[in-house]
């Protein structure tokens, strides 16, 4: 578009000129705005299900400790088989993404049993401390390790208040296609992100339901009408290590 030096008798044509400019600019801007959208559509199509992870969602878990049975470890075995976490007979170095912990109130003697796993914090200390940014939080709140950039320094394991992470201490073979994992990197619960991306619930939640306990409720914390948020709003829930103000995505009720 050319701009000639303006003369007084050209004022009319200038208005026209300006209009043309705005029309063209608007077209340009909308094209720029649309182009990534078009790209997004293409990417979303590539995904087998509807949408990319977004800030509108925040996946979480609610553990009803009243329903969680001491001695039951269906969630743990479901996790192990889903992700191919086979032990090497060395409990100190074997991977553990979810574990059952028995609690006893030191004053009253009240006992309960809870699963502890990655709490998928809103402000995860593991993500803060990771030097390469391999520990990250996906837009929909799932805390993951990008094992392509993990250098195995284990600083995240120092920082995690829940001891939810494991370091892979040996060469592995026979990994699951959907759960790549290998020596020298750190890993933890992925909330079964491969299942969530295909609109399924995490393996532990499914196993708990199938075992007849139904102590784990999976859902979107931001969706007020959804199972997780509506249940959480009706009952007292707590997060582990509330002193750290991490706003965890995994919450506990009935204790």
């Amino acid at each position: 578009m050319s701009c000639k030096p303006m003369k007084k008798d050209e004022s009319v044509s200038l208005a026209q000129h300006r209009r043309t400019f705005f029309t063209q600019a608007a077209a340009g801007v909308s094209l720029m705005a649309l182009a990534p959208g078009v790209r997004l559509v293409e990417l979303a199509m590539a995904n087998s299900e509807d949408s990319l992870p977004s800030n509108d969602k925040r996946w979480g878990l609610l553990v009803d400790t009243a329903k969680c049975e001491s001695g039951c470890d269906e969630c743990v075995s479901a996790c192990n088989s889903e992700h191919g976490l086979s032990g090497h007979g060395r409990p100190e170095t074997d991977a553990q993404w979810i574990r059952k912990v028995d609690l006893k109130d030191e004053q009253t003697g009240h006992e309960l049993s809870i699963p502890i796993l990655c709490q998928h914090c809103e402000d995860p200390p593991c993500v803060d401390v990771c030097p390469t940014g391999a520990s990250f939080r996906r837009a929909d709140g799932i805390v993951l390790v990008d094992k392509h950039t993990c250098i195995g320094c284990r600083y995240c394991m120092m920082a995690c208040p829940f001891q939810a992470r494991s370091f892979i201490h040996e060469d592995l073979t026979g990994q699951k296609t959907h759960s790549p994992r290998g020596k020298g990197t750190v890993e933890s619960c992925t909330l079964c992100v491969h299942r969530i991306d295909e609109d399924q619930e995490p393996a532990c939640v499914e196993a708990c339901r199938e075992a007849g306990h139904d102590a784990l409720v999976f859902g979107d914390l931001e969706d007020a009408a959804g199972p997780l948020a509506s249940l959480s709003s009706k009952t007292a829930t707590r997060e582990l290590r509330p002193d750290l103000k991490l706003n965890t995505g995994v919450r506990y009720t009935s204790f």
Binding site: L43, A46, N47, S48, L52, P53, R138, H148, I196, D197
Partner: peptide
């Protein structure tokens, strides 16, 4: 790989799982 790890885009044509 970055599309999958960060954006959850799975099963598209350039996946390593597809190669295998």
């Amino acid at each position: 790989r970055d599309q999958t790890v960060y954006h959850g885009i799975r099963g598209s044509k350039h996946s390593l799982a597809g190669c295998i």
